[in-house]
């Protein structure tokens, strides 16, 4: 029997990271407020044919044909439909504030890692912060790549809720890990699942927005007027596409994360798969997203039906991350 002192915790770093987290939450809350203003009062304008639409093709508003400066006459039979979204100056500012919050989040995670002297997603609190980092990263990516900053008003909601829960109930001081987590497979496994989980979160929130927008569009097609934010949402095609994109990214990563987890379980517990509740639920999520991908390839299932499966998948992921730890007992005593 020997005793070791706790790995020294760098106090300065620890308190810096605690300050950063508050700053980050304030930044996200401000950004959410501004995004919400854009969503509610921005003018619903057509998005420029950017990356989602073929470059220099069908450039004229609503037109499918055009001749570019090289004298090439182009005819694109189906553009991606016209994508509209509410835009205003507020959204730009909001995006800037989100970038700031993201930077604070990165700094928070780095300083916490330095404080504890290890990879900084080793307990539930750190896990939530990392998950939110990825979700916001996904939001920023979608904003710059797909002009989808309107998602901010939706993605930041669960982010703030989770951060709130994390700070209020799950906070623990930085410190070392329990022995079962001493394996390089752990950071690999957990990192993959956090990144995939963050992407699923963006996709799920986008999917919910899609469902509302799709209904609004259907009602508009019937000649009804759709009031409120529901009527001002971005075009459903665009939302569907973005949420699909994020799943294409997240699904293989989730698969890989499960495999990495199995390798770790094999090292730590002597079996690579033991149907412990955490494993069961990651399997359930995996199957649900596989069903989503199949649904999109099945006649009559694309659109809202497939998106419901996506939302269900998102629910299982969240349930797994947050509820399973508390509801069931298992070896994954991560909390």
């Amino acid at each position: 029997m020997t005793y070791t002192l706790a790995a020294p915790v760098n106090e300065a770093m620890a308190s810096a990271s605690d300050t950063l987290i508050i700053a980050m939450i304030v930044a996200y809350a401000a950004a959410l407020f501004l995004f919400a203003i854009e969503a509610a009062y921005g003018r619903r304008t057509s998005l420029k044919a950017g990356r989602l639409m073929p470059v220099a093709v069908g450039g004229r508003e609503g037109g499918d044909t055009g001749a570019d400066d090289a004298g090439i006459e182009v005819n694109v039979r189906s553009t991606e439909g016209e994508a509209k979204a509410p835009r205003s100056m507020m959204g730009r500012i909001a995006l800037g504030v989100t970038v700031l919050g993201f930077a604070l989040s990165v700094a928070q995670i780095v300083s916490r890692g330095l404080a504890a002297g290890r990879w900084p997603w080793g307990n539930m609190f750190e896990f939530i912060v990392a998950l939110c980092l990825i979700a916001v990263g996904g939001l920023l990516f979608a904003s710059f790549r797909y002009q989808a900053r309107f998602l901010g008003a939706f993605v930041l909601v669960p982010v703030l809720v989770l951060l709130g829960i994390g700070v209020r109930w799950l906070y623990v001081d930085p410190g070392p890990l329990i022995p079962a987590l001493h394996s390089y497979w752990v950071p690999i496994h957990v990192t993959a699942l956090i990144i995939a989980g963050g992407a699923f979160m963006v996709s799920g929130v986008t999917g919910i927005t899609y469902l509302v927008s799709h209904r609004a569009e259907a009602r508009r097609a019937l000649g009804e007027k759709v009031a409120g934010i529901a009527g001002r949402l971005p075009s459903p095609e665009l939302l569907d596409r973005i949420s699909h994109r994020f799943i294409l990214f997240a699904f293989p990563l989730w698969t890989f994360g499960i495999i990495a987890g199995a390798i770790w379980a094999d090292e730590a517990w002597g079996r690579f798969w033991g149907w412990d509740p955490k494993e069961v639920w990651s399997f359930i999520s995996w199957v649900v997203y596989a069903a989503y991908l199949h649904a999109r390839a099945t006649g009559g299932w694309r659109g809202p039906k497939a998106t419901w499966i996506n939302v269900l998948g998102f629910a299982t992921v969240m349930f797994n991350f947050f509820a399973v730890n508390y509801v069931f007992s298992g070896l994954h005593s991560y909390a």
């Binding site: 005793y3 070791t4 002192l5 706790a6 790995a7 915790v9 623990v172 001081d173 410190g175 070392p176 329990i178 022995p179 001493h182």
Partner: peptide, 12 residues
Amino acid sequence: IEDGDLRGQASS
């Protein structure tokens, strides 16, 4: 771990 909040948590 001998001291701090985490006293008693196994380290190896």
